[in-house]
Nucleic acid binder design. Structure first.
Lengths: 355, 355
DNA sequence: GTGAAAGCGCTAACAG
DNA sequence: CTGTTAGCGCTTTCAC
């Protein structure tokens, strides 16, 4: 049987009310002596509050529901990690459930979390705007992070794809490239369009010509990157650099380049996007703009926490810009290479090293 | 305000006791009429049980704590997914927390989960035997999955590295190879030793000579695989096939092979281990023995659930064998290639397609 | 500065 | 078959 507040009261010689007051460290006046005695008793008994009981009284559980479209998506774990790390600092816990990209399962998940009296929700990588009536009637705050649907909405955190693309292409320009090609993602994806627009923007900014032959559309997959690069290599006047919209297509492109015996970055420089783990593993190591997933998770948790503290007005959509991780494929001077290898924020380091 | 059992009682015209009885579908006798009325009322009111209240009464919450050493480890998410999928079918929820490979954080996590009245624990990828006194005194059941420490213990689920290695090397032998090299993992890791032993076992089984020059020890990392393969290529009498103890080293080995212009699988066939996601992405696609992480998660959850149902005696350590995913790097006939691409069990498909 | 007591929503023992 | 009631551990009025 776990020790309760009663036990502490008995041992300390005070009432449960007083015990509760010191344990919760409320502003309520308590004598120094009482405080000391109670603390002592709690200590020796190894008292641990029963959060179920507390939650029942207070109507909040210091718990938030995290509804992930798929835990196995490569971007989901770091987002969740960011959420958890932030939440932990505030004494909150995240309950993670998979929705499997099924509206109905998501609906069930919401109900189940409501049953467990979560204080709010975070939707991770949601593909659609939740229509859930339950969520609406529950009055609980929620925020989206890394939403995949196009409509921009309040209380959501996304990556700044435009700015990320600008980072990538500006880097190539700064390296002296004038003929920069682009392998875009599918243009029915919001982020593909933004990355493409970022690319165009840098070119026009620098007065570089836009050659439609130098832009080809892939479908995010390896094969399409391979195909696109093969086409680019067939051009009478080859590009000297390519900005590829995601790492997966870059892998394919690299295969095409190897096949054609074209040296990277010697003959063609490459900057990729997403900064997947393998960017550091394969050779040449990929220069890539990160999807700032960890930081997005942290931000989403922060927004939700603020709402939980009573901040009512919805907050503008937050766009977080990835960082450019300079490695080998872009051909930059080794001295320029990015030192830290994880696109996380101080929270992560703190979480890693707290003792 | 959420609707309570009281509301349902009022609307249905029965007492809260009756309502509780039909809602929990206990064996207790209830008239058909009462049952119908109550169900109706619950339905129209949108009743949802308050799990905090229920948990407080029943002393169990249908919740298990999942203590993961690091959510960002590549193997952790699929293990957790397996656990969650199994738990869901039993109406349980997993609370996931990171322990960051720090005993002290793990200790805190246990305390926190105890505070939330979890019914049991699953330790994922734990690097050490938990010394937690709290856990011991709590009397709650727990199981380890994919433990990294060497000592075999009860109530834990691990991969069968020996059997997996046998699978890999037998495959190479069946393809006609006689000179099979091995790039082992660090020999202070339990699983490296087992994979090495599996390799030896197959060789001796088939009367093939063991040549110590053909075995080199890496440290799991890319560079060591590259180095090891370079050495192998310098041998006066090269191997025709290599079994490499993990995918990361295989990536390095592939670089060395490319460098030396050795065709894979034409001149050297390769079978790898772990079956990381990128095995399907890179070229040649890697033939690799899977770490059956998803299934391990499912099994661990099953064991814990059984213990929760009152099954008391500790269960022998369960070893789960990975599957050999035949792709391109081994040079097998394309007709032999493995069709299904995920090493999961029917539960996963069910979870994916439940409607 | 302290304590008694109500009550959060639920289950289960008991009474009918 | 149905209803009344105690009580899980806690916070929070309210009274002293």
């Amino acid at each position: 049987m776990p020790v309760t507040i009663q036990d502490v009261a008995a041992l300390s010689g005070f009432s449960i009310a007083t015990v509760s007051r010191v344990l919760n460290n409320t502003g309520y006046p308590v004598s120094v002596k009482a405080r000391r005695k109670v603390m002592e008793a709690a200590q020796t008994l190894g008292y641990r509050p029963n959060l179920l009981a507390r939650g029942m009284r207070t109507e909040h559980t210091k718990t938030v529901g995290i509804i992930a479209d798929d835990l196995l998506s490569p971007f989901t774990p770091p987002i969740i990690r960011g959420i958890q790390d932030y939440l932990n600092t505030k004494g909150y816990l995240g309950l993670i459930v998979n929705a499997d990209r099924e509206p109905q399962i998501e609906e069930e998940a919401i109900g189940m979390l409501l049953s467990r009296a979560v204080d709010g929700f975070i939707f991770v990588e949601s593909g659609y705007l939740t229509p859930s009536s339950e969520l609406a009637t529950s009055q609980k705050p929620f925020v989206y992070v890394h939403r995949l649907f196009g409509t921009s909405i309040y209380d959501s955190v996304v990556t700044d794809d435009f700015a990320g693309a600008v980072l990538a292409v500006e880097h190539l320009v700064s390296l002296g490239h004038q003929r920069i090609a682009h392998v875009a993602g599918p243009q029915n994806w919001y982020s593909s369009v933004l990355r493409y627009e970022g690319y165009l923007s840098v070119l026009s900014e620098h007065g570089l010509p836009v050659d439609s032959n130098m832009v080809s559309e892939g479908d995010w997959e390896y094969e399409s990157g391979e195909r696109a690069m093969a086409e680019l290599l067939n051009l009478p006047h080859r590009p000297t650099a390519v900005f590829i919209a995601n790492d997966e297509m870059t892998l394919g492109a690299l295969a095409a380049l190897r096949n054609a015996q074209v040296d990277v970055p010697g003959e063609i420089a490459i900057v990729s996007y997403d900064n997947r783990n393998y960017c550091r593993t394969i050779r040449p190591k990929l220069t890539s703009v990160s999807l700032p997933v960890y930081r997005m998770g942290v931000k989403a948790a922060e927004i939700l926490h603020n709402k939980l503290q009573g901040e009512t007005p919805p907050v503008e959509e937050v766009r977080i810009c990835g960082r450019l991780f300079i490695r080998e494929s872009c051909g930059a001077d080794p001295a320029m290479r990015t030192a830290d290898e994880h696109d996380v924020d101080p929270l992560y380091a703190a979480a890693k090293h707290r003792k």
